[in-house]
């Protein structure tokens, strides 16, 4: 059932110069490698009228990912959604913002339901119908972890997409296993000797997924839409269990301006806290390099959840986060040696 992994060129073929290069959604000076999100033919799988907050990163990430998957499968796609913000804001009774077959069951069982849908399609001989399970970090990395690990371990033909906004947002911003050290949430208030979330907690689910030796694991960021599309497209070219984690800022939970969603995602990417990489069968195969690494303070200071770190006496928290970023830069060899964009 394993298919050959098909490599999409969007990431490798960096558009040199041409005014904005490949940094913008489209580049009118070059025809190739325009993103689907710049096309009038994109399907808008998550339609207007949904009730996500202003500037929601998750709504944006979900549309980018599912539009791409629809395009890659010629519309033969079923989506299974875990409980969470994405499910709540997209389908408040009696309306749905989804424009494709979409199922919601429970908070923690999306991976299991999706496995069932995939098996059912196989039994019916409809292997052209592909299955995506999706959810936030709470439903995926905490509550749904058991079902997810099972789906990986059985190598079910499902792509699981986790939109990671680093806390339980729809229930009022409670800490999850993805909440970074020092961050303020409703359950990790910035009080006492160690304000905010404890350092040294949490887990990397992409690395856990890699440990299952599944065909494909990738991290993506909403501030890098061409890369996100290429990764979803690549995932849909593969049979078996796949996992993509998309970094999506939450203006409400993080205390950022609604207009800064892309900016804060870009800063996270550029300071090394959220490295972008791909792995096949447990081995890292590609890392997106950074031209230069920005200090983490640029990323932290525009978020109210980290505001306490900038008060006297909490400098060590900033240093701890910088140390995490520095370790990522070393571990993933993020600094590019060649200066791309030069002629």
């Amino acid at each position: 059932m394993q298919s050959q992994i098909f490599h999409y060129p969007a990431k490798d073929a960096v558009i040199k110069l041409h005014q904005t290069g490949d940094q913008t959604i489209s580049n009118r000076l070059v025809d190739e490698a325009d993103s689907l999100q710049g096309s009038r033919e994109r399907s808008n799988a998550l339609d207007s009228g949904h009730r996500a907050c202003q500037g929601c990163g998750e709504a944006l990430g979900a549309r980018h990912a599912i539009d791409t998957a629809l395009d890659a499968t010629d519309g033969e796609l079923v989506v299974v959604n875990a409980t969470g913000c994405l499910e709540v804001f997209s389908t408040p009774y009696p309306q749905s913002a989804w424009r494709l077959p979409w199922v919601h069951s429970l908070f923690g069982n999306a991976a299991a339901v999706a496995s069932g849908v995939a098996q059912a399609m196989k039994m019916q001989g409809k292997e052209n119908v592909r299955v995506i399970a999706q959810g936030g970090d709470g439903g995926t990395t905490d509550i749904g972890m058991g079902c997810l690990s099972g789906m990986f371990e059985r190598n079910e033909d499902v792509l699981y997409i986790c939109y990671n906004n680093e806390a339980y947002m729809n229930t009022g911003v409670q800490r999850s296993s993805q909440t970074p050290g020092g961050a303020r949430t409703a359950t990790t208030m910035p009080v006492g000797e160690h304000p905010g979330n404890n350092f040294g907690t949490g887990k990397s689910v992409p690395k856990i997924a890699m440990a299952h030796n599944i065909p494909y694991v990738a991290t993506a960021n909403i501030a890098n839409p061409r890369d996100l599309e290429a990764k979803v497209r690549k995932a849909m070219s593969i049979r078996g269990a796949r996992y993509i984690e998309v970094f999506v800022p939450c203006p409400l939970g993080w205390g950022t301006a609604s207009s800064d969603t892309i900016k804060v995602a870009r800063l996270a990417m550029n300071c090394g806290l959220t490295p972008l990489y791909e792995a096949e069968y447990g081995q890292i195969t590609q890392v997106t390099k950074l031209a230069n690494v920005q200090p983490v303070n640029d990323y932290l200071k525009i978020q109210r959840r980290f505001a306490h770190m900038f008060q006297p006496g909490n400098e060590h928290q900033l240093q701890s986060i910088q140390a995490i970023a520095d370790a990522n830069v070393r571990a993933f060899d993020l600094l590019s040696s060649s200066n791309e964009g030069e002629e």
């Binding site: 959604i25 009038r40 996500a52």
Partner: peptide
């Protein structure tokens, strides 16, 4: 191509692609 087209739309589609609410209509 180093011109940044300051102040006038060059159709990079950022507004269209980055709108979380599909509230931008691309006219072509």
């Amino acid at each position: 191509q180093r011109c940044m087209s300051c102040g006038n739309c060059m159709e990079c589609d950022n507004c269209y692609g980055f709108c979380p609410d599909n509230a931008i209509i691309k006219l072509g």
